[in-house]
Amino acid sequence: MTSTIKSTKKLVIYSFGIGAIYLIFGLLEFARGLSESLSIPWKISTVLVSPDMFSGVTLVIVGLIFLFEVHAQWKSGKDAGSFLAVGTLLAAVFFAVYLAIMGAHAIGAGVYMISPEAYAEIFVDWAEWTWTTDMRPGLWLFVFTLPGAYYTMKMWLSRKKKT
């Protein structure tokens, strides 16, 4: 009984923490995107907060899903783990998409370097590409969701066993 309460408490704190981080960075990304579209630059590195309003909104949505976990636990604990699992899944989807984009752009940069001069112009968009160009919160924030993924998997397996 005590261990259940402890684990529930841990889950609530974790979900709140990860939800808040996603929410904050989502809002920052949105604000920076809006601000830079109005030609007001920020001095923070784009790796930390990239200027992308829409990406910011998606992070906010993921953050809200994590925060719903807190609400679900608070209310009854009946749906415990569902919001955490889906939040983690969505975070993984965005991570995979951003990683695929990074990989594709790396190919573009590679071809620019080796392509003959006559065709280099076609790949000029990636002339100055480095791995930090495509680094954004949706990528590195994913690392923080891994404990949640582990918990979800454990929870799912134990429920499956019980039933």
Partner: peptide, 22 residues
Amino acid sequence: AFFALLWAVFQFTFEASAPFMS
């Protein structure tokens, strides 16, 4: 969640395909 996933679809479609278009 649907709109977010749809956005991910188009981010992938547009950004990841660009070098292959080139």
